[in-house]
Computed example of a mutant assay.
Amino acid sequence: MTLAAPAPIRVLIVDDHQMVRDGIAALLNRQQDMAAVGEAADGLEAVHQFRALSPDVTLMDLQMREMGGVEAIKAIRGLAPGARILVLTTYPGDAQAVRAMRAGAAGYLLKNCIRRELIDAIRSVHTGRHAISPDIAHDLAAHALDEPLTDREVAVLRLVAEGHANKQIGRVLHLSTDTIKAHLKTIFAKLGVDDRTHAVTVATRRGFFER
């Protein structure tokens, strides 16, 4: 008596670039234990497709129109708390990875990963394990004990990145100039920098800003 082959891992691919979706689908469909069962170009479509298809693993991009990946992860996990979601993104940064993992992602890979790494990560996530790119894991470990920026501090720094002076930032956020200066002093300390330009550079690299 021949044993039936186990059912393939059914994967939903979410990315706003058709060529990326096509490339990943072709890669998955070459694996004996995987099948690309659907795709979506944004977060809203991802939630709809997840509801319709109930995939085993969802590959999720982060920066998309209509609804971003983090919001889509939250929505899907609201529908199915056990949903297994693997982020596949262009953008590194420990802060962004933390947001995705807190939303319910089981893994975080960069799109420059090798094909074998992606395939192994899908299998790991499917079995209930976590999968994180080595570079992201290193950044997470390096900043694990850092005090994170608050939402208000990120808002201040985002306006700094847009070129606003302290007075302008205060007007936008309805805060005094002294309060803005105090926020910047705290931001510099948390990021380990000495000036506004370096603060913006570090915050961008670490993923505090949505792109």
Results as ranks from 00 to 15, higher is better:
Val20Asn: 07
Gly43Pro: 11
Phe209Gln: 06
Ala40Leu: 01
Glu39Asp: 11
Gln96Pro: 02
Lys111Ile: 01
Met60Arg: 06
Glu147Ser: 09
His138Arg: 13
His17Ile: 08
Ser133Thr: 08
Gly207Arg: 05
Ile114Gly: 12
Ala155Gly: 08
Asp16Arg: 10
Gly23Ala: 05
Gln49Thr: 07
Glu45Met: 12
Ala131Arg: 08
Cys113Val: 14
Thr150Met: 00
Arg115Asp: 13
Ile73Val: 14
Ala26Asn: 00
Asp139Gln: 13
Val172Glu: 14
Gly163Thr: 13
Pro134Met: 00
Glu162Ser: 15
Gly23Met: 02
Asp61Tyr: 09
Ile76Ser: 07
Gln18Glu: 15
Gly192Met: 09
Ala121His: 00
Glu153Ala: 03
Leu159Arg: 14
Leu173Ala: 09
Ala41Trp: 00
Arg171Trp: 01
Gly38Cys: 08
Arg211Cys: 02
Ile9Arg: 05
Gly38Val: 07
Glu153Tyr: 02
His183Ala: 11
Thr204Glu: 14
Ala100Glu: 05
Ser54Arg: 14
Ser176Arg: 11
Val193Asn: 04
Ala189Lys: 13
Thr197Arg: 15
Val37Asp: 08
Asn29Asp: 14
Gly107Ser: 00
Glu45Thr: 10
Leu28Ala: 11
Asp139Met: 07
Tyr108Ala: 05
Ile85Ser: 01
Asp56Phe: 00
Arg205Thr: 13
His164Met: 15
Arg158Thr: 14
Ala46Leu: 04
Cys113Ala: 02
Arg205Met: 13
Leu110Thr: 08
Met64Ser: 07
Gly104Pro: 09
Gly93Val: 07
Tyr108Asp: 04
Ala131Ile: 10
Leu145Trp: 01
Ala105Glu: 00
